[in-house]
Design a binder for these strands. Structure first.
Lengths: 344, 344
DNA sequence: TATTGAATTGGGAACGTTCCCATTGCCATT
DNA sequence: AATGGCAATGGGAACGTTCCCAATTCAATA
């Protein structure tokens, strides 16, 4: 029979004092205690291996010190980078993070949301997979601060923090034009669920022509090679210098596979992607990307949440973050001087 | 002023019944209630948007239904895959998972461990970054079930679940021998902290010679190219067909960079890695890997934990899991017939 | 000497649940 | 008609905290 966890009262008894004093010792009022008492409590707590029970603390007014985060796809490196940023920022503010993954399943999303709420999180950071408008609305209404990360949710009036999608598309197009490409194929996963995909797609459709680019668009329901190959093949044979622009990291991966399958050389046919990945610098001449400042985005989300939580003067929060261009060989038309380019 | 979350009592009052009945409604005793009462409670709860407070529930004996997981490096895709497996299995058993990342920092690890304990997790799944023997010992002693994932902790008598490292090394060496390589360079990150790295290294040192291989070893303190380049260059020039074996995914990445920097062709100089990554099939002729069955490992960890938790007949748990060989072009000596090899 | 006040400390209620133990009502027995 | 039992319900204590307020001590002031 292992001894169960020690409680405040046990520590108090052992230290020969009252629960209040022990409570103070572990709270922010430790300096109100005499050094002698502190020492006694310290010793008692240590021999008992006492740790305050945050559940009980959370129950009695003090707040749970928990932040909840909902992630659409935890196996996506971009999402992980966001989680990492959020977790760091949360910890810096004395909050812990409970992360729920939804595997892009709207049904599971509802369940996870309920779970998060049940654990009395003090705030919620949502990277939505579906459009869980109703439950989020309910949550907001019952006083839970809420920040949307990367993706908006229809009708939901909440802060959204993420990439400046318009700027990203503009930067990509500008880079491609500068490199001499004249036609661009934009490839995206199905934009019906994710606002980010819509925003990028729309901006692309608006901006390609004004910049003198011939544009095409490919919407993917699957990332299997077969979904990509025919269009890619046809596009590569079209006249004039042509480049492919990928809407996110998954698509970049799918297209890199496509290039390989078809034996297409990157550069002569351009390839560029939104989202920076480990291997983009590595493959063939290097794949040009737009890196998202994931840590900054995560931090901003937490700051934003805490602004709603605390009534002190709100810190200013940047909602739309600029990407960083990582130019590499895959958008270098002329294959001479394909100089070393490993900058991350 | 947003209305704060509704409580059991409020629901009871609105439904014109007692808290006990409402409690029963949300617990496992719902069938003890008359249909009429059920309906009333249902309606009241719904209009109030009531969700049981799991903190309060956890306080009063019922257990927190929380599992804690400590991850050494959440940005490592392998770790993420483990988290994913664990989370799925936990959810299937009605548990939620609170994940703490330690960024490979033993100091942070202690803090995170304390946090996890404070939230009254019912069990702990530990992928250690340091050797937090003392705190874990204390936790076990105070009755928290505990499973080590992938890495052991000195002196700690607890279940360890992960790859069968010996088998993995054996499989790798066998594959390399079969492919005709005669000398192997084993590259690993510093094995001082991580038991897994030690196990693999030791097995390599034991098994290379008996299989007729000339062996060398490179221990990395940094994954920067400079740490790899000199040794790699020298090794590549050594006589006879030579291959590099990478101890984990990070090392594979570093060496793929190294190959690229030096303009080495994969295959003629072999490259093989433990851990399967998105881009391994993609790069040049494809990098041969040993894939870890991460989902199975995660599931096994949860099962193992729940065995300790429940006193019912324990399910059997596989502790050492076999890897899966993904053969690709990077371990194909003869460069003719570098056939298509994209199998994941 | 009496009074004020600060510094320390302790008692008790409350937080939202669950669970043990009544209590009630009603039907089928004796 | 009285008894027993079962099904449905409710009251109250307890879980481990925090926090309000009161109590005690002791020195300094009037």
């Amino acid at each position: 029979m292992p001894p169960s966890r020690a409680t405040l009262i046990e520590v108090a008894t052992l230290a020969g004092t009252s629960k209040t004093s022990v409570s103070r010792f572990f709270g922010p009022e430790r300096d109100k205690l005499s050094p002698a008492l502190c020492a006694r409590i310290e010793r008692a707590a240590h021999t008992l291996g006492y740790r305050p029970n945050l559940m009980a603390r959370g129950l009695k007014g003090g707040g749970s010190r928990l932040l909840g985060m909902l992630v659409a796809d935890i196996r996506n490196p971009f999402s992980v980078a966001l989680v990492h940023g959020v977790e760091q920022a949360a910890r810096a503010q004395g909050y812990s993070l409970i992360v729920c993954n939804t595997d892009n399943d709207p049904v599971l999303e509802q369940t996870q949301l309920a779970t998060l709420a049940a654990y009395q999180v003090e705030g919620l950071i949502i990277n939505a997979s579906g459009q869980p408008e109703a439950p989020l609305q309910a949550l907001m209404h019952s006083g839970v601060p809420l920040v949307l990360l990367d993706r908006e949710v229809n009708q939901l009036k909440a802060d959204v923090i993420g990439l400046d999608n318009a700027q990203a598309i503009d930067m990509a197009l500008e880079h491609l034009v500068l490199q001499g490409y004249r036609s661009v194929l934009y490839v995206s996963e199905s934009p019906t669920q994710a606002s980010t995909r819509q925003a990028r797609l729309i901006r692309f459709e608006q901006q390609a022509r004004p910049r003198g680019l011939t544009s095409r668009t490919l919407l993917l329901n699957s990332l299997e090679p077969d979904a990509v190959l025919p269009t890619l093949k046809a596009f590569a044979q079209s006249a004039g210098p042509a480049a492919v622009l990928c809407g996110n990291g998954n698509v970049t991966l799918a297209l890199a596979r496509g290039f390989q399958r078809l034996g297409l050389a990157m550069g002569p046919v351009g390839l560029m992607g939104i989202d920076e990945l480990d291997w983009c610098a590595l493959i063939a001449p290097g794949i040009t990307t737009l890196a998202q400042p994931t840590d900054a985005i995560g931090r901003a989300a937490v700051t934003c949440l805490l602004n709603q939580l605390k009534s002190t003067t709100p810190a200013t929060v940047l909602h739309r973050h600029a990407p960083r261009l990582c130019p590499r060989g895959s958008t270098q038309l002329s294959s001479f001087t394909p100089e070393e380019s490993n900058n991350p």
